[in-house]
Protein backbone atom coordinates (compact mmCIF):
# COMPACT_ATOMS: atom_id res chain seq x y z
CA UNK A 1 0.00 0.00 0.00
CA UNK A 2 2.67 2.48 1.07
CA UNK A 3 4.91 1.31 -1.76
CA UNK A 4 2.08 2.01 -4.16
CA UNK A 5 1.77 5.55 -2.86
CA UNK A 6 5.50 6.00 -3.35
CA UNK A 7 5.24 4.84 -6.93
CA UNK A 8 2.34 7.19 -7.58
CA UNK A 9 4.31 10.07 -6.09
CA UNK A 10 7.27 9.23 -8.31
CA UNK A 11 5.00 9.20 -11.33
CA UNK A 12 4.05 12.72 -10.33
CA UNK A 13 7.71 13.72 -10.13
CA UNK A 14 8.42 12.20 -13.51
CA UNK A 15 5.42 13.95 -14.97
CA UNK A 16 6.78 17.26 -13.79
CA UNK A 17 10.41 16.74 -14.78
CA UNK A 18 10.46 14.63 -17.91
CA UNK A 19 8.53 16.68 -20.52
CA UNK A 20 11.08 19.50 -20.51
CA UNK A 21 13.99 17.19 -21.07
CA UNK A 22 12.25 15.30 -23.83
CA UNK A 23 11.12 18.49 -25.49
CA UNK A 24 14.63 19.92 -25.41
CA UNK A 25 16.15 16.61 -26.54
CA UNK A 26 18.62 16.42 -23.71
CA UNK A 27 19.25 12.72 -23.94
CA UNK A 28 22.35 12.71 -21.77
CA UNK A 29 20.52 14.47 -18.98
CA UNK A 30 17.62 12.12 -19.44
CA UNK A 31 19.91 9.14 -18.98
CA UNK A 32 21.48 10.56 -15.82
CA UNK A 33 18.10 11.55 -14.53
CA UNK A 34 16.62 8.12 -15.15
CA UNK A 35 19.49 6.45 -13.35
CA UNK A 36 19.04 8.64 -10.27
CA UNK A 37 15.29 8.41 -10.52
CA UNK A 38 15.34 4.62 -10.55
CA UNK A 39 17.79 4.33 -7.69
CA UNK A 40 15.83 6.75 -5.49
CA UNK A 41 12.65 4.94 -6.46
CA UNK A 42 14.13 1.62 -5.39
CA UNK A 43 15.29 3.18 -2.15
CA UNK A 44 11.87 4.64 -1.57
CA UNK A 45 10.03 1.44 -2.29
CA UNK A 46 12.36 -0.43 0.06
CA UNK A 47 11.71 2.09 2.82
CA UNK A 48 8.01 2.13 2.17
CA UNK A 49 7.60 -1.62 2.17
CA UNK A 50 9.10 -1.77 5.66
CA UNK A 51 12.24 -3.54 4.59
CA UNK A 52 14.88 -2.42 7.02
CA UNK A 53 17.34 -0.22 5.20
CA UNK A 54 20.38 0.41 7.38
CA UNK A 55 21.00 4.05 8.12
CA UNK A 56 24.32 5.36 6.77
CA UNK A 57 24.58 7.38 9.96
CA UNK A 58 24.81 4.12 11.88
CA UNK A 59 27.72 2.99 9.74
CA UNK A 60 29.47 6.31 10.24
CA UNK A 61 28.99 6.07 13.96
CA UNK A 62 30.58 2.65 13.97
CA UNK A 63 33.52 3.92 11.89
CA UNK A 64 34.12 6.97 14.01
CA UNK A 65 33.44 5.59 17.42
CA UNK A 66 34.59 2.03 17.23
CA UNK A 67 37.28 2.06 14.55
CA UNK A 68 38.77 5.55 14.82
CA UNK A 69 37.90 5.94 18.47
CA UNK A 70 36.66 9.48 17.90
CA UNK A 71 33.73 10.27 20.07
CA UNK A 72 32.72 12.24 23.09
CA UNK A 73 31.12 10.38 25.88
CA UNK A 74 27.44 11.04 25.87
CA UNK A 75 26.30 12.45 29.15
Amino acid sequence: MKALLVIIAFCGIAWMDLPDMIKNKQWRNLAIYSAIFLSVLTFGVLVASDIKVPSPIKAIQVIYRDILGLSFKAS
Binding site: I13, M21, N29, Y33, I36, G44
Partner: peptide, 12 residues
Protein backbone atom coordinates in the same frame (compact mmCIF):
# COMPACT_ATOMS: atom_id res chain seq x y z
CA UNK B 1 19.88 23.34 -19.68
CA UNK B 2 22.94 21.30 -19.12
CA UNK B 3 21.69 19.92 -15.85
CA UNK B 4 19.00 17.41 -15.33
CA UNK B 5 16.22 18.75 -13.07
CA UNK B 6 17.27 17.16 -9.83
CA UNK B 7 15.27 19.19 -7.33
CA UNK B 8 12.30 16.93 -6.86
CA UNK B 9 14.20 13.70 -6.99
CA UNK B 10 16.77 14.94 -4.52
CA UNK B 11 14.04 16.09 -2.20
CA UNK B 12 12.54 12.63 -2.43
Amino acid sequence: KSFPPLTLISTA
